[in-house]
């Protein structure tokens, strides 16, 4: 048979496929590594989503941080001229949604674990603006989640690929350390904040890409 549609694989993972269709799809999976990879990825996503708590108590002090973040962003630069309306592809929306879920769940986990338990920003955390601390927490938790996923896939990657990823990560980490130390010395420097955020974005993006390499090596 030809490859099943993604919807069929989704239904298989969700246990909603009719018995006859399920038999066909499972027979196909037995001989098709690409589709097996798709199913594995779907199952991993479902498992990750299931692992998220359904509700969370709001810890003391969270609203102070939220208020500080809002205050810091109260002044919004408006575009200089009207722009054409943007449309987003389903893929873009899916990526954005995934990033949002990761960032928010990461932030939640960070809050639940208690502040200061994240590895990198512990020293000097009080020197940084509250708005940046919240942003950074989201990045760090995303990095941690992706890093764990990458470590789990390490055996599927060849050594040259792993070396390339680690080299790039080391370059980004050195930049983060340098920019962060500078921001601690000058916490109100908006350009520094933007540069540091750019480094974190690069790290999250690189890790995201690295976790997708297992299927092609």
């Amino acid at each position: 048979m030809t490859h099943p549609e993604l919807e069929q694989l989704n239904d298989l993972v969700d246990g909603r496929l009719a018995p006859a269709a399920r038999h066909d799809v499972e027979a196909h999976l037995a001989s098709c590594r690409a589709c097996r990879d798709e199913v594995d990825a779907l199952r991993a996503t479902v498992a990750a989503a299931a692992a998220l708590p359904s509700s969370l108590p709001v810890p003391d002090g969270l609203w102070d941080d939220v208020r500080a973040t809002i205050d810091a962003r109260r002044v919004v630069a408006l575009p200089r001229a009207p722009r054409a309306a943007r449309t987003f592809s389903t893929r873009t929306l899916a990526i954005a949604a995934t990033a949002l879920v990761m960032a928010s769940s990461g932030l939640t986990a960070f809050v639940l674990r208690g502040r200061g338990s994240s590895p990198a920003p512990v020293e000097g955390v009080t020197l940084l603006p509250a708005s940046w601390r919240a942003t950074e927490s989201g990045y760090i938790e995303s990095v941690d989640a992706l890093r764990a996923q990458l470590d789990a896939q390490r055996a599927q990657l060849d050594t040259a690929t792993i070396a390339a990823v680690e080299r790039a990560l080391a370059t980004i980490d050195a930049a983060i350390v340098e920019a962060r130390a500078a921001l601690e010395r000058d916490p109100a420097n908006a350009a520094l904040t933007d540069l540091l955020a750019s480094n974190y974005r690069q790290k999250v993006e690189l890790l995201r890409r690295a976790t997708q390499l297992a299927s092609i090596t």
């Binding site: 030809t2 490859h3 590594r33 690409a34």
Partner: peptide
């Protein structure tokens, strides 16, 4: 592996 759906196909996939 892979191939096309019913012609004219809207999707073709190869692995």
């Amino acid at each position: 592996d892979g191939g096309a759906s019913e012609p004219p196909s809207k999707g073709v996939k190869y692995y």
